[in-house]
Amino acid sequence: MARNPLLRTVSRHFLKPLTFWLLALPGLWLGWQWAMLLNGQAHGLGFNPIETTHRFLGDTAIRVLLISLAVTPVRDLTKWGPIMMVRRRIGLAAFWYALLHILAYLGLDLFIEAGTVTGALAGLWRDVTDRIYITLGMSAFVLLIPLAITSFNRMQRWLGARRWQGLHRIVYPLAILAVLHHGFMVKGFQLAPWIHGAILAALLAYRLVGIKARKTPHPSASKS
C-alpha cells in the first residue's frame, strides 16, 4: 500500500495533522455548543446540557481509546506502516477526553452541588468509595495517567522500549475498566456498553491470538 505515491505523500505530510484535527473535532464541537448556550443561542446540548456533556466526553474517551487499540491490527491487516506514527497521539487524545470528562464531573456536578472545592473533593472521595461505576471509571483514569506522562519521546527513551511497552500494556485492563464503568452506569439493559465491550473483546482476542500464533517469542510477547 505504501507503494502508492499518493498514499505515501498523505502519510508523510498530512497524516499527523489530519489525525490531530479529527481527534480535536469532538472537543471543538462541544466547546462551540457551550459557547452558543452561554450566549443564549440555539445549541445542540439538549435540555440537560450537563448530562449531555458527561455522556459525550465519556463516550468520546472510550471510543478514542478503542481506536487507539485498533491501530496495530489495522497496520497488520493493511500493511500500512505509517499509521503507527499516530497511535500514541490517539491514545493521548483518549487521556485528554477522560481528563475533561472528570473535570466536567468535578466542576459541573460536585462543585455546583457542594459549593466549595473541599466539598467537591469530599464528594469525589465519597463517590469513588461508594459507587461502583465511579470506582471503576476512576481506576481506569488513574491507570491512564502514567501512560500519558510517559507518552513523550524523552520518557520513552528514558524507560527503554521494552519497559515502556510493558508499562503501556496497562491499556488493556484499563480499557476493560472503562467499558465496565459505562456498563454499570446505564439503566436497564442497554446496547451501547455491550457494543463497546464487543469491540474491545475483539481487539483483545486479536492480541491473544497473535501471541499464540507466534512460534518464536516476539519481544512484545515476552514477560514484562
Partner: peptide, 20 residues
C-alpha cells in the same frame, strides 16, 4: 442514595443550565 448516585439534590431542567 441511589446505589449509584446521590439523591440529595437535583438538576433543574429548562432554566439556568447550572441550576440545582
Amino acid at each position: 442514595a441511589h446505589p449509584r448516585w446521590s439523591q440529595r439534590s437535583e438538576r433543574v431542567i429548562g432554566g439556568n443550565v447550572f441550576a440545582r
